[in-house]
Design a protein around this nucleic acid. Structure first.
Lengths: 194, 194, 194, 194
DNA sequence: CATGAATGAGTTTTCATTCAT
DNA sequence: AATGAATGAAAACTCATTCAT
């Protein structure tokens, strides 16, 4: 499932530059207002005409999908770097949670979007796979190292993945320094895993 | 903040019966489609005309609020029963999590709705208070009993409250028997608290 | 295939009155501008909002179909009266052609619309049937009376049906008094049939 | 009225080759979809960019005109050959109708386009003249030979010209062998003329 | 009061035409 | 000159809210 299925492909540099500008604008606008944001607003933010968006994305739904997929891939790429380090599994979980938090800071509203996407679209299965992959490997690693308990890794992974959600973060932000949030969440999660 | 502030009061029995029918229909429809559901669909499901909804609720926003408040109160009432039992704090947490799960099963999508409500409406403060109150008391109890660690109870409460979210539950449902979900979540949470 | 499949049914009098107003306005506007006429213009002419049109007709295409079908039925009803008279078949053909011409005068541009409809829509078969039915009966009658030649009635009927077309009429109108057109066409057709 | 007035002239051979490619593609696409066909589709079929079409044709309307004129001229050229033969007028009418049918087979939808053109454009007069000229000469010839009745030749010509229309042909095609259509139409027309 | 038809502002979507590459 | 990406005005369509019946 490549991006080409979501945006209409083009060999021209200027076209692809615009696809990028549109996606970046869409991320910003979706972050603020969720999926209900107007296409016109995205076009304005991207500095292109509405027609340009419709030239590259068949309709609004596909734009939403494309943005979602790109964020998912961003998450995956960051996680892959973490998982290749030679540190104990619990350290890796801390790093992965840090990445999640950074992305949440960056994409806010989009968390719900990703959840919706992973349930309602043809890409759902793939999104779920991407999000789960690295975490499960790390959890198995921790189990082999005797750091994590021997529960089904898929289930433990579900907790790690879903505990970092927009509402928890919003809540914690009102109660503690933002810098302390990653450690607090990681402490809770690692106790849950142990 | 009473329901009468959200729905327009009426002395006629059949009018109040309509408010009830509308609220129940709205719960079902919001559960499936979230707040974006159309008023007309709710009216249809309730077996009333759209005009009747607008006679009872100033606008769509107020209907959303009213539905949200009612669920919040349902949650509060159940939790109050749990907290008054004379069992150890960890048992109470298990019971409270069970209630959460039942509500999630019942209201699905509405979790996000409540979160949104607790952030964006005049009732936010009250909603947050209702949701937090019982949990915090129980956590403090557990800390006094030496069962839970001495982290700020407000923060621990945040984890308990927000770990039960629609996406985690949907995910777990695909991986285990529904009956096992409450125990699995409670195990994870209680480890996190300890 | 009933009209209910084309317009959304309603039991209310005011609703049906509007369906009628919309159809009449659409006939007038389509007559002038063809199918490319704007929905907004039809709404204006009908004295209703655009939303009202979309409440009754799922989309523009369906409105076009509905208007087409209504005209077809109008044609059929007129023809049925003619065919029941006790006059020779050639007289009936003259009467039927007169009706055609009146309808053409009334609906102008819509002729092309009907042709397109009879080819491209799910109603095509039905439209063709309605238009052909009465003519074929009359032609057979004429053949039994020895007035028309013994060519396949379906083929003769095709000539009668399709000779009355917008372009011929427009052309003749520039060359003769409008009152003389029916007789001129009928003379030509009846010679063709004999 | 020469083609140069419709397409922008160019000294380069490849440019003129493009005009030709565009016209041929436009004929095909207009034949299928009528004048509502999109410029982009014509460009694609022609294997050129849309910009190239706009370099050669001021706007879509002019492209439509150009295509129409070319077909008209094709008709005229064929008819001229027929009219110069030394056969009776009714034979000539048969030959002319044959040509019409071939053109219809070739250009389908374009018939309506030509009719529209002959009514709405600055070329209307010319188009009507080209289409009428040869037919009228032939009809007068037939009247002198005593084969056709003494109706106004312009009116008889109107019948011959307009009886060959897309809808009649489509209809007949579903009822008889394609090879038999010319004779059937000619028989009907010649009876009408006699 | 209840109803659901009507409304029209607000959005999405299309496509002839322009223009940077 | 050719290209096809970009444009944006214009058209289609939606849906919260009003109001006649």
């Amino acid at each position: 499932m490549e991006k080409e299925n979501l945006s209409v492909p083009s060999s021209r540099k200027d076209a692809n530059r615009n696809v990028h500008k549109i996606m970046e604008a869409a991320k910003v606008v979706f972050k603020e207002k969720g999926t209900e944001a107007k296409i016109e607003e995205i076009a304005e933010k991207a500095g292109v005409g509405v027609g340009t968006i419709y030239r590259r994305f068949v309709n609004k739904e596909r734009l939403v999908w494309a943005v979602g997929m790109e964020i998912i891939e961003e998450i995956r790429d960051k996680q892959r770097i973490d998982v290749d380090l030679s540190v104990p599994a619990d350290q890796k979980i801390r790093l992965i949670l840090d990445e999640f938090l950074l992305l949440h800071h960056k994409y806010g509203q989009l968390h719900e979007m990703l959840i919706t996407l992973s349930q309602d679209t043809p890409f759902g299965e793939e999104i779920r796979h991407i999000l789960s992959d690295v975490l499960q490997v790390t959890i198995r690693e921790g189990q082999e190292q005797g750091i994590f308990r021997n529960e089904d890794p898929e289930i433990l992974e579900a907790f790690v993945l879903h505990i970092v959600n927009a509402s928890l973060i919003k809540r914690l932000r009102s109660q503690m320094d933002v810098e302390d949030i990653p450690k607090t969440i990681a402490d809770f999660v690692l106790k849950g895993l142990s």
